[in-house]
């Protein structure tokens, strides 16, 4: 930007000016292309369907009736098996009997676990699911793509208050932040870098 904004103090002759202008224009064009390419790359991250393809993310648990204390949309990281059981109990906290089975054991050295809640919704017909692809990594930032499905605006729907939520696993890797997209706002979760998983 500084290149375009400040002129030279030299007084070049026409030919020199011509060369200079041509060179500058060419350099500017190249730089512009680089900037545009970078921007496009950045834009690519803003929509699912692009980016690197690390091992697949997956849903560990889900519920339409979370009894999570926060009634607003939320994203939380789970780092221990104890936390996992606590959150699983909240995810199925409206259920009286029989109790939901315990969540499976997780190797937290291999997977980052995120709890994702859509918050309270006024009717049935809302649900959270993973987008396709659900997980990409770029420039040491991971991106998890969630889709919040809503009922059609003119649909007749069951008048029960719902609170959809997911427990999602994503592979650890060479990134220190997970950005979660797809709720009303973007969430950033700090994580420790880990050894990327091999395979699918």
């Amino acid at each position: 930007m500084k290149y375009y904004g400040t002129g030279s103090s030299d007084t070049p002759n026409r030919s020199a000016l011509g060369r200079s202008a041509t060179t500058r224009a060419r350099n500017g064009s190249i730089l512009s292309l680089l900037v545009i390419a970078t921007l496009l790359a950045g834009c690519a991250l803003a929509a699912p369907g692009r980016g690197a393809q690390p091992p697949a993310a997956g849903i560990v648990d889900s519920s339409l009736q979370c009894s999570h204390p926060e009634r607003q949309p939320a994203v939380r990281r789970i780092t221990t098996q104890q936390q996992l059981q606590q959150v699983a109990a909240q995810m199925h906290g409206t259920r009286l009997a029989p109790k939901a089975p315990p969540s499976p054991s997780i190797d937290f050295n291999r997977w980052n676990i995120l709890f994702i809640s859509a918050g309270e919704r006024p009717t049935a017909g809302y649900r959270l699911q993973l987008a396709e692809p659900a997980f990409t990594v770029s420039r040491r930032r991971a991106h998890l793509w969630i889709a919040l499905k809503k009922p059609a605006s003119d649909a007749r729907v069951a008048a029960v208050v719902t609170m959809p939520c997911l427990l999602v696993r994503v592979p650890v890797g060479d990134y220190s932040t997970i950005e979660v997209h797809g709720l009303e706002r973007r969430y950033q979760i700090a994580v420790e870098k880990g050894v990327p998983l091999q395979g699918k």
Binding site: P69, A74, R76, Q86, V87, Y187, Q188
Partner: peptide
């Protein structure tokens, strides 16, 4: 931040910045 009640030992990575 009441969520810390539920995720007690994960306060190092807050969502609310």
């Amino acid at each position: 931040n009441i969520i810390i009640r539920a995720l007690a030992d994960d306060p190092g990575h807050p969502v609310i910045r």
